[in-house]
Nucleic acid binder design. Structure first.
Lengths: 335, 335
DNA sequence: ATTAATAATGACTTCGAATGCAATATAGAT
DNA sequence: ATCTATATTGCATTCGAAGTCATTATTAAT
């Protein structure tokens, strides 16, 4: 009934009549042990219920086998899936995910303290903003970090990213080619880097196509926020030909707002495009034309880069960009 | 440029002209250190960039400060949010989440090995099935475990759970009172305990109300699965008065299937209820009458119970059940 | 000033596995 | 059988912080 004492390598060694080193070597791959000893040790270990203590191993090898994954609340809705995918991918590389969340920028210091403390082998940051000062800190601690879905061309950070530029231009081309003249952009929260990137790309490209001063309104990536943003805007403006939404959830909100409150329909009265390719985007009531993020490629690449950096910390930074795939829905009208 | 050597408590001690013990005490709360020493140590520590090594601390204190969270792929769609909520709640208790996934039952042994290895302080299992044999193993290792959203009345496991019984009966009462006579149940995958529980409750309660042999068809909790299950079933059957879906996503699938392929509508031609209270359930096109799981209460309770068990491992097992709240949508017709 | 009570300190050991090194055993060659 | 070359083995040390305990400094009380 008492707090049961853990079985250590010494216990097994004593019982099996070998040294502690021998036990240790049996549980390390690629170390030289005679068949006889190995069998003896494995047998007693199983009998006694011995498992090497990962903590002790971490201390001496200076490898925790853990990767910090930083989630920010600004994360887009498909991030949970990303997390589970990352976890699987990292498990294949014998790494465990230690989860951290970063909600306020001013918690950053505390977060970093925590990360150093846990001696993680590497870090993957989802949608969190890291300025170059923080990135330098990672370099100083020689902790590799990969930024997920961020594109920081000027910096020398490791990043994986969906090609927002290409994707958004592709959507806008579709709209432009089918003769849409006036546009409205519904952007994500302006403290999200991804949101800003998507907004800017759309603004600039429309400008390039000769469409000046496209209005922008802001949501928080959520359904309601898009609806009320649009509702507000329409109090003093008229419906454009097309609405470019920074993600699918907001596109869904927009479609519902148009249907319910304006009694109009998409794409007949206005075209809508989204971004992300979440599953709801293809539900019968929406069928949004959007860009699907290549999530599995992105997560795999993030893990690959991280593993490479853990192996070889001085390697140069790398940015991998993946092209999303166009999902042709039924939310664009040919005018 | 070389792999930089970590700063240890000895380094700080030497620099500050105190003993290593002194440094250690400065960084432990509630230990007796003179103001002078504390200031000296804190100053040099900051200067040298010293942070206590959590791994070494774990080894000596035998507390890893980590809680394993086990995700199964059978998890319902709202689990990602649960994960992030759990993480926050645990962080408040100074615990970190170490993520594990369990996809196949036959990976269980490996998973458990891993968990013991990492010396986690406790475990929270989301939707994963643990038989009493595995639960005994946790007891043997004196690792507290809390099952999230499982109700195992006979066992002495720690569980938190939404009151499926009450919720589902509430929904069925609504249907029954508004004069629905014939029913169809769309259940979740039959290797999910929660799915089976929900199905059984519905079946039994309908039976209690005098409605015999309600047909059951199965989906996998996903949109498409519900649509095709219903489509198949309708090849040889006619539409019932009401369809009881084991989760909201399948209810959404059903509504779309009815609209798109049958050209009928909900609730005019058939009533539909769901379960979970996900955000999409209240989107304009669906407005499902459903039961919202009290997710924050559930997660908080799971963490509370776990913390109590970590404090006091011999305490008796506890099951906390929370009542979900009815969301009145527009998917039930008064007949 | 003296004593008693308390606070602060450092030397040393501990946690549990990994590993360099020297010692020993085994296999292979002649 | 003898001598190398190679494979195994165990000893002793290491990782970095925590905590016990005996010692010393400080404070309070008389």
């Amino acid at each position: 009934m008492s707090k049961q004492k853990r079985v250590t390598s010494y216990d097994v060694a004593r019982e099996a009549g070998v040294s502690q080193s021998a036990v240790s070597r049996v549980f390390r791959p690629g170390f030289s042990v005679s068949k006889k000893t190995r069998e003896k040790v494995v047998a007693t270990a199983n009998e006694m219920g011995y498992r090497p203590n990962a903590i002790a191993r971490m201390l001496i090898t200076k490898q925790s086998g853990m990767v910090a994954v930083i989630l920010s609340s600004r994360a887009n809705l498909n991030y949970p899936e990303v997390l589970s995918e990352l976890n699987k991918e990292l498990a294949l590389n014998n790494k465990r995910v230690l989860l951290f969340t970063l909600d306020d920028a001013d918690e950053l210091d505390e977060l970093l303290e925590n990360i150093w403390t846990f001696q993680v082998d590497g870090v993957i940051a989802l949608a969190a903003h890291f300025d170059s000062k923080s990135l330098d800190l990672f370099a100083k601690h020689s902790t590799p970090i990969v930024l997920y879905n961020r594109n920081v061309p000027e910096s020398n950070a490791n990043t994986v990213c969906c090609n927002h530029d290409k994707g958004i231009k592709q959507l806008i081309d579709l709209l432009h080619q089918s003769n849409h003249k006036s546009y409205l952009i519904i952007a994500g929260p302006d403290d999200s880097d991804v949101a800003n990137e998507r907004r800017e790309i759309a603004q600039n490209y429309l400008h390039t196509l000769g469409i000046q001063n496209t209005p922008v309104i802001y949501g928080d990536y959520g359904y309601k926020s898009a609806r009320s943003a649009l509702e507000n805007w329409l109090k003093t403006n008229t419906l454009p030909d097309a609405i470019i939404c920074s993600n699918d959830v907001m596109a869904i909100g927009v479609i519902d707002e148009i249907k319910q409150n304006l009694n109009l329909s998409v794409p007949d009265d206005v075209s809508v495009v989204g971004f992300d390719g979440i599953s709801a985007a293809s539900w019968y009531n929406y069928q949004i034309t959007t860009i699907q993020q290549p999530m599995k490629q992105l997560t795999k690449a993030a893990v690959d880069i991280l593993m490479e950096r853990i192996e070889n910390p001085q390697a140069a930074a790398e940015a991998r960009v993946f092209t999303g795939s166009l999902i042709t829905g039924n939310s664009i009208k040919t005018r």
